[in-house]
């Protein structure tokens, strides 16, 4: 399949990665090569095959619904690039 520049730009936006104009062409080629490689899977008939949903056969465990950890706001915020009044701070999102 061929991946056009508009699609590359759309994926980049969905992935929240700014792609500079001079990077776009090389990236387009790399992504196209990788997709061409993985498309080999089309050769295999998988109509009656269930998708793998768990690597080892196990069910998720249940536990009591109670708080086991917390009150660590300082630790949670310790690596924040910017914080204010005990919250993460980000650029304004509401005008």
């Amino acid at each position: 399949m061929s991946l056009d520049q508009a699609t590359v730009a759309r994926i980049a936006h969905l992935a929240r990665i700014r792609v500079a104009p001079d990077e776009a062409e090389a990236l387009q080629k790399d992504l196209q090569d990788i997709l061409a490689f993985v498309e080999q899977l089309g050769e295999v008939n998988t109509d009656d095959v269930p998708p793998m949903t768990s690597v080892t056969p196990q069910a998720l465990r249940w536990r009591t619904d109670k708080v086991t950890d917390g009150k660590k706001a300082d630790q949670v915020l310790a690596n924040a690039p910017e914080q204010a009044s005990g919250f993460y701070a980000v650029p304004r999102v509401v005008e």
């Binding site: 992935a15 929240r16 990665i17 700014r18 792609v19 924040a80 690039p81 980000v90 650029p91 999102v93």
Partner: peptide, 24 residues
Amino acid sequence: YDGVRYGLRVPGNSLIEMYENTRA
């Protein structure tokens, strides 16, 4: 990894732009 909770943050004019710049 979006520049909010840890690690690198590259500023932008909006939140989305900040995400995109940081991840780029």
